[in-house]
Design a protein around this nucleic acid. Structure first.
Lengths: 326, 326
DNA sequence: GCGCCATGTGTCAACGTCAACATATGCGAC
DNA sequence: GTCGCATATGTTGACGTTGACACATGGCGC
């Protein structure tokens, strides 16, 4: 900076003013300074800036390693939006949901230079770990309901699950079986609740849900059980991967999908459209969720203002895996 | 820090020594200082540290938005390993491979506080954009061959493709058809080359490869063409997603897999095991690639030493989608 | 003609840390 | 006894930036 100042024949402060477009700078001076910066390849030193201002222009993201496709896409969207707003992103991975590793992540976070934090971890898992959220730093939750204390951004799980269930019922199925996500997952629970309420609202029998863990393998295992039950004609899996597993179980046994059994997933994995049969699913928009999370956080950081956070809607995408019952 | 020093009745420098475990500190003093740090909740200020030391203990990762599953897993592994070594991770997303956005990413990078950079972008796309890599900062490439200038870490694409092709040939197929990745992809090219060389080595006919773009949809489209050709009995798709599409095309036409046609993918997507039929594939280890990339970079950062970077091997996972020809 | 204000620029200090240097004590070797 | 060295601690200044303040100049209103 000093070199630039000398080169342009001004003081360091004026260079600072040009860089930050703050305060009065004469047009000719600005030009001289800009030219000097160009010539010398000057880049402001972010460490010094941060030291001086106490702000890092960096957002920390805490996220499980081995995260779901949806969360990966959310992260992606967070990165893009943050970059667009001039924020860098610092990723703090959490290797497992063991209490100490989550706590460790937060401890690491405190040493890191972040102005705000986006937490992309399902809240139930957090509760269990009973981790204390860092104080004094704005926090936004994604995919959870830590709600009261901090803003949270999420997909409208209930609406999506309702769409899926109603689609099957509207096709004429007498009831809908459900493969859930893991017990400790907030979104899994919301989907299960909405499925159940939809059935109850129509006065229909609510079959015992089968527990999965998001993985295609767990969907397959649920499918093995479902295919033994003759009365099963419609299955709503809480995500696309488990739907893939359910699909396998039925087809492996020579049962036709959608002829004998209809299957709906949840997520909108791009590949789900290329399964055979193509999977009917609930399309989520993790990219909107991620962008919204950044907007909410940055609004709080820059303007100190707390934005409204509507749930992000989903749409049903009807493909070949669903049909009226025989 | 000053508060801690006062609390412990020592100078700031001694606190610094305790924190960094450098220089001589009396045992009793150390204990007093540590207790004071604990009591006051002291965290070293990373900005000041960075300003002082010129090192940020941060690694920048440049990566395409909408990246493949493998790259996501690589990122994940990078994050975990970096955290383990006490490095923070800054993510710089590149939204598209348009020349200006890639260039923009590097420009942003120069302003960011990173000690080293890991670039997870296929080199061919980089070449095209003709982007200048930042000078004076150690760079490691993943998934590409920018090689000569900078270290690079990658999966042994050729070995994997050879495994896949030989598996099909060993089953007795007369030749193997190939669905490639995008033309500009380095790994796609390596897989195609190895497939071709394997066939040539056995003096077999090399069918015209079909071009895909990694997506399941493109695999489906390739499959539509392949299923018109009666002589096709074995297909090697350059990734699992395209294999899913190929699979769909055949099954949709009532063609049996693996009865009439065998299909092999590449990647080792966890869900590929739950397809019907379960997909034979080449298992990659992106987590090893990511960890290795960090190790190489950190070796250069901390020890100034350039590590050997062996290619990361793959294994063939034989499942239900391959069988001897009828 | 005087004061006021908008404009343009410079000086200084401080952000929190740590390397370099200075200082102090005690112990063993000659 | 005194010199040298290992050990233990304190003082100072600098890293690069920017906020606060000071100081100019010139135009406008009265």
């Amino acid at each position: 900076m000093e070199d630039v100042a000398r080169e342009a024949g001004v003081s360091g402060q004026t260079v600072s003013r040009v860089v930050n477009a703050r305060g009065y700078v004469g047009a000719a001076t600005r030009e001289r300074v800009e030219e000097a910066m160009q010539r010398l390849g000057y880049r402001p030193n972010s460490a010094a800036r941060a030291l001086r201002s106490g702000r890092f222009r960096t957002i920390g993201v805490v996220m499980f390693s081995f995260s779901s496709y949806g969360n990966q896409r959310t992260l992606d969207a967070i990165a893009v939006r943050a970059a667009g707003l001039g924020y860098a992103l610092t990723l703090i991975p959490v290797e497992s949901d063991a209490r100490d590793t989550v706590a460790g992540a937060f401890r690491r976070l405190e040493e890191h230079a972040v102005d705000g934090i986006i937490i992309v971890i399902e809240a139930h898992q957090l509760d269990e770990a009973d981790v204390e959220i860092p104080q004094g730093v704005p926090v936004v939750f994604v995919d959870s309901n830590r709600g009261a204390e901090h803003p949270f951004v999420d997909t409208d799980q209930a609406q999506g699950a309702r769409l899926a269930t109603e689609h099957l019922l509207d096709l004429g199925h007498e009831t809908v079986w459900h493969v859930t996500g893991p017990a400790r997952s907030y979104s899994a629970e919301r989907r299960r609740e909405a499925w159940q309420q939809t059935l109850e609202a129509r006065g229909l029998r609510v079959p015992e849900p089968l527990q999965g863990d998001w993985s295609a393998r767990s969907g397959y295992e649920a499918g093995l059980r479902l295919r033994e039950l003759d009365e099963v004609t419609a299955v709503f899996a809480a995500n696309d991967q488990m739907a893939i597993g359910v699909l396998r179980a039925f087809r492996e046994a020579g049962r036709d999908v959608p002829g004998e059994v209809s299957i709906v997933g949840f997520d909108g994995l791009p590949d789900a459209a290329q399964l055979w049969p193509p999977l009917t699913t609930v399309q989520q928009h993790p990219e909107r969720v991620g962008a919204l999370a950044v907007d909410v956080l940055v609004a709080e950081l820059d303007e100190g203002e707390r934005l409204e956070t509507p749930l992000v809607g989903t749409e049903l995408v009807v493909r070949g895996s669903t049909a009226p019952p025989r």
